[in-house]
């Protein structure tokens, strides 16, 4: 039997620290809010976290491939406005399904536009997606200039209140996302993804189709952003072209807290999923700890900074010891 090695755990399992963080956050939240695991509370929390979980999973794929996608919030907005204007408050379930498919198509298309610029034209990901983010939010504003519209309350309630076997819908979605990721990870594409993110030139030399791999990461991210857009539309039941804008930076924070390096090639999808949940739990902790109103933003930001810095600090201390 090998002794437990912190370094090995950190290196082999990038989600390791994220899980520790989540468990700590869960324990603190549970102490402050003893009914947090009651079915209703758990479900109401998870349905709020799910859009960010989906968004972070997509963002993780792009970041693993060495890029970054700042346009995800814009894609969320497009999907939200499509559903809110086309389905309407009195729409039928069939209409909803139709436009869910249209939305997914729109997400894939938006991702493909990003991918085309970045993979084929070799433009900088951060600038490209920053620019397209305005393109997408602008398009969403064009679809729905004033907040309004929505989807039927019954359909929104399916999202809000479905708890098969007493577990929130979000758990099943997370399980499906992780299972698909596990499968992808085991395919050749999975290996290519890490190769491209780690060192694109070396990958190219070894005949990895770098361009196509890069392109596909943005398509996946667009698709996941569309799913996030569908989820948040079902959560809020209404349309607002600005809805996705604040979500972009949070998705990147979730990825980093989840142990996936912005440099690319290191990490996975499970960590970012855990990171997105942790960010939500942190908000709960702030809310239940009854800190003074004027300090809320400061305390929340401090916790996130500490969470981001912790793995680095631990590594630094360990290096000094040796």
């Amino acid at each position: 039997m090998k002794r437990f090695s912190w370094d090995e755990m950190m290196n082999r399992y990038p989600a390791f620290f994220a899980i520790i963080l989540l468990v700590v956050a869960l324990i603190i939240n549970f102490i402050l809010q003893p009914n947090m695991f009651a079915r209703d509370t758990l479900n109401s929390n998870m349905r709020v976290f799910l859009p960010m979980i989906l968004l972070a999973a997509g963002q993780a794929i792009v970041i693993l491939g060495g890029g970054i996608d700042i346009s995800v919030g814009g894609i969320v907005s497009i999907v939200n406005t499509i559903l809110a204007t086309q389905v309407g408050l009195n729409g039928s379930p069939e209409k909803m399904w139709t436009f869910v498919l249209v939305s997914l198509g729109a997400g894939i298309l938006a991702g493909a536009i990003n991918g085309f610029f970045i993979a084929f034209l070799r433009l900088q990901p951060i600038i490209t997606t920053y620019a397209t983010s305005f393109l997408y939010v602008g398009f969403a504003l064009f679809i729905l200039p004033n907040p309004g519209g929505g989807i039927p309350a019954e359909i929104a309630n399916v999202y809000r209140n479905t708890t098969p076997l007493g577990l929130p819908l979000a758990f099943y979605v997370i399980a499906v996302v992780l299972l698909i990721w596990m499968y992808i990870r085991s395919t050749r594409f999975g290996n290519y993804l890490y190769a491209v993110g780690g060192n694109a030139e070396a990958a190219y030399e070894t005949a990895v189709p770098v361009t196509w791999v890069l392109f596909s990461t943005y398509v996946v991210s667009g698709f996941m952003a569309a799913l996030a857009g569908i989820a948040i539309t079902m959560l809020s039941g209404s349309g607002n072209a600005e809805i996705g804008v604040p979500m972009t930076l949070t998705s990147i924070t979730a990825v980093v807290i989840g142990g996936t390096a912005l440099s690319g090639g290191i990490g996975g999808v499970a960590g970012p999923v855990v990171g997105a949940i942790t960010l939500g739990i942190i908000q709960n902790i702030i809310s239940f700890s009854r800190i003074d109103t004027w300090w809320e933003t400061f305390v929340k930001a401090s916790i996130i900074v500490v969470a981001l810095a912790a793995p680095g600090v631990i590594n630094l201390l360990r290096r000094k010891k040796v």
């Binding site: 948040i232 959560l235 809805i243 804008v245 908000q283 709960n284």
Partner: peptide
């Protein structure tokens, strides 16, 4: 009370 989005206010 904090700067937040729709999902955050639902929370």
């Amino acid at each position: 009370s904090a700067d937040t989005d729709v999902a955050g206010q639902i929370q």
